[in-house]
Simulated scan of single mutants.
Amino acid sequence: MKKVTVYTMPNCVYCTRMKTWLQDHEIHYTEVSSTKIVDTNLINSIQGFPFTVVQEENGNEHTVLGFNVDLLQKLI
Rank of each mutant, 00 (worst) to 15 (best):
C15Y: 01
T16D: 05
R17E: 12
R17G: 08
M18N: 02
M18G: 05
K19G: 00
K19W: 02
K19P: 04
T20N: 15
W21Q: 06
W21D: 02
W21T: 05
W21C: 03
L22Y: 07
L22K: 09
L22H: 08
Q23D: 10
Q23C: 03
D24S: 10
D24A: 07
D24Q: 13
H25V: 12
H25P: 13
E26R: 13
E26A: 14
E26L: 10
I27C: 12
I27K: 15
H28I: 13
Y29P: 12
Y29E: 11
Y29Q: 08
T30V: 03
T30E: 04
T30L: 02
T30P: 00
T30H: 03
E31S: 14
E31Y: 09
E31Q: 14
V32H: 06
S33K: 15
S33P: 13
S34I: 08
S34Y: 10
S34V: 06
T35A: 03
K36L: 14
K36I: 11
K36G: 03
I37Y: 10
I37D: 14
V38Q: 15
V38M: 13
D39E: 01
D39Y: 05
D39P: 04
D39G: 01
T40S: 11
N41T: 14
N41S: 15
L42T: 13
L42Y: 11
L42D: 14
L42S: 14
L42C: 13
I43V: 13
N44K: 13
N44G: 10
N44W: 11
S45I: 05
Q47M: 12
Q47P: 00
G48M: 09
F49N: 01
F49I: 04
P50A: 02
F51A: 01
T52R: 07
T52H: 08
T52C: 07
T52D: 06
T52M: 07
V53K: 11
V54D: 00
V54N: 02
Q55Y: 08
E57K: 10
E57V: 10
N58V: 01
N58S: 01
N58Y: 04
N58A: 00
N60G: 01
H62P: 06
H62D: 13
H62L: 05
V64M: 05
V64D: 02
V64E: 02
V64C: 06
V64T: 04
V64R: 02
V64H: 04
L65P: 00
L65A: 04
L65R: 07
L65N: 07
L65M: 11
G66R: 05
G66F: 08
G66V: 06
F67D: 06
D70L: 05
D70A: 09
L71M: 03
L71S: 00
L71E: 03
L72V: 06
L72D: 09
L72Q: 09
Q73V: 14
Q73L: 13
K74Q: 09
K74I: 02
L75E: 00
L75T: 00
